[in-house]
Structure formats: C-alpha cells, structure tokens
Amino acid sequence: MNRRQERRSYIVGYVLALALTLPVFALLAFDLLPRRQILWIAGVAAAVQIAVHFRFFLHIRLKGQTREDLQLILFTTLLLILMGGGTIWIMTNLAHRM
C-alpha cells in the first residue's frame, strides 16, 4: 500500500466513525425514538464502529494477518462474552430471586 492509500484509509475510518456516532447523538438530542430503541441502534452502531476502528486504524484484516493476532482477538471476544455476559446473567438471576 502506498502512502496516499494508507492516508485515505485513516480518513475513511475517521469519517465512518463520525457517521456512526453523530446520528446516535442526534437521536438522543431530539428524542426521535423511544430510548430503548435508541440503545439498540447505538449498540449495533458501536459494534460496527469497533469493527471500523479495527479495520482502518488498527489494520486488522481477516486475510494476510499473522494468525496469532486474529486468534487472540477472537479468544478475547469469546472471554469478554463469557465473563461479561456470565456476570450480567448471574447477577440478574440473583436479583430476580431476592
């Protein structure tokens, strides 16, 4: 990749990141949707935005990446789901029974 392409990658990433963030603020600011729905939209936007950061700023690709990097990211994601999800599940379960 040459210099111009690389710079464009950062700028595209930046624009995408803004495009994924600003609408959520707008939705909140003008109360365009019920709050619960905004949270869902924000959640999806956040997931996409994390992918954008990984792709354009951290240069993680599915192909051509050193294998252990990808394994590590997937393993961390698995553990975050296990630990975070497990925690919320257990504590909610407890709260319901108290």
Partner: peptide
C-alpha cells in the same frame, strides 16, 4: 498508536453502555 486507538474503542463502549445505556 495502538494504545491510542484502543482507548477510542473503550470510549465507544463507554459512550454506548454508560451514557446511552444510562439514559435509556
């Protein structure tokens, strides 16, 4: 650079879960 970008990713989580989630 990696740390800087990583802190951005964490901020996305904070913005979504703490702020938007808090207000929802």
């Amino acid at each position: 650079g990696i740390l800087w970008h990583f802190l951005d990713v964490v901020w996305i989580g904070i913005f979504t879960i703490v702020y938007v989630g808090g207000l929802a």
